[in-house]
Computed example of a mutant assay.
Amino acid sequence: MISNRQIILVTGPARSGKSEWAEQLATQLNKPVIYVATARHDPNDLEWRERISKHRQRRANHWKTLEIPLDLASIFAEFTPPNCLLIDSLGTWVANLLEQDETAWETINANLLVNLQQTQLDIILVAEETGWGVVPSYKSGRLFRDRLGSLTRQIGLIANQVYLVTGGYVLNLTELGKPLYLS
């Protein structure tokens, strides 16, 4: 069976408009959208609650929202086409799992990639680009940067479209670039 499903990756730095672009892409697909929020709520963090609130206000009212901070791979089996999953964001999801040891992380990562490749759903993933700055001086910062960078690269290689949002512009990397395959 040939699938017409799309895997779309939207990446870029903080406050670049990644989520807004992903939301526009989801709207353009003209399919039911399930917005998968990976953030954990912290009732003691007012600024974080305000960020989450802004994201909610921007989304279409008819979109279904699910909060999946940990078991992201399981969501693919819960829905069937013509639904579209918009996952925002991979950086938050990686941060939620940062305490996993390397073996557990590799299993979680592989499970996500396998499920992503096997689903027949349209999937739009938002990922932060963290490697454009200095190398963090603390171990957890380096671990986060390395895990997210590797995951984003792996998804980029299986995605139908990859967009970079930065400086107020959206670049279609699939049209402009050439894939760099993992060795």
Rank of each mutant, 00 (worst) to 15 (best):
I2S: 15
R5N: 15
R5D: 07
R5M: 07
Q6P: 01
Q6M: 12
I7W: 03
I7S: 04
I8N: 00
L9G: 09
L9S: 10
P13L: 07
R15H: 11
R15M: 11
G17Y: 03
G17K: 08
W21L: 15
Q24H: 09
L25F: 08
A26F: 04
T27G: 01
T27A: 05
N30D: 14
K31R: 15
Y35S: 05
V36F: 05
A37Q: 04
T38Y: 02
T38I: 06
H41N: 04
E47A: 11
R51E: 03
K54S: 03
N61M: 10
N61K: 15
H62V: 07
H62A: 13
W63Y: 09
K64Y: 09
A73S: 15
A73I: 01
I75K: 03
A77F: 05
E78Y: 14
F79I: 04
P81V: 12
P82E: 02
P82Y: 06
C84T: 15
L86I: 10
L90Q: 02
G91Q: 00
G91N: 04
W93K: 02
A95R: 02
N96D: 01
Q100P: 00
W105E: 04
I108Q: 14
I108W: 15
V114G: 00
N115K: 13
N115V: 02
Q118W: 00
D122Q: 09
I124P: 02
A127W: 00
E129G: 10
G133N: 04
V134R: 08
V134S: 09
V135A: 03
P136E: 06
K139P: 09
K139G: 00
S140Q: 12
S140F: 10
S140V: 13
L143M: 07
F144K: 02
R145W: 04
D146G: 09
T152W: 09
R153N: 09
I155G: 05
L157I: 07
I158H: 00
I158L: 13
A159Y: 10
A159W: 11
N160A: 12
Q161C: 11
L164R: 13
L164M: 15
G167Q: 12
G167K: 12
G168M: 08
V170H: 05
L171P: 03
T174C: 08
T174S: 15
E175I: 01
K178W: 06
K178L: 06
P179R: 03
L180M: 08
L180W: 06
Y181C: 03
